[in-house]
Amino acid sequence: MAKHHITTTINGEEAEYLCEPQETLLDVLRDQVGLTGTKEGCSSGDCGACSVMLDGRLVCSCLVLGVEAAGKAVETIEGMADGENLHPLQQKFLEEAALQCGFCTPGVLVAAKALLDTNNNPTETEVRYWLAGNLCRCTGYDKIIRAVMDTAADMRGA
């Protein structure tokens, strides 16, 4: 079975990889491209640990075929900070202890950024529903929700 040669953009840089047609974007990111910040928690779209942006849309990379990324733009957790400068969400998560084991954190951050990029004044309910697909078993969500709300408030104030 022939592998597909895919050219795509990952975190702003052109990337190429070979993949089997059934391989998911998650498999490809982790095993071919070496970006293991995107996590596998369920491979059925139920946990959100593998959240990435695909052409500006928040998706579960476990539910995208690697071949589908051809010609598209993929953004992962590894592209969230600007060099040494953490994204405000990343900084706020550290300051407010919005992570414990940290395994869901990359997916949560990617998802939260997608929300704040379009809505910098979400209600608590909006944040909770937006992040309902990002399971966290450690925090009870409290500090995650607060950190997202507080980042949004900072962004509005800035």
């Binding site: 779209g45 928040l58 998706v59 579960c60 539910l63 995208v64 997608a114 937006w130 309902a132 697909g133």
Partner: peptide, 9 residues
């Protein structure tokens, strides 16, 4: 249907 992530697809 599903999460925000699922809604994207």
């Amino acid at each position: 249907i599903g999460s925000t992530q699922i809604q994207g697809r």
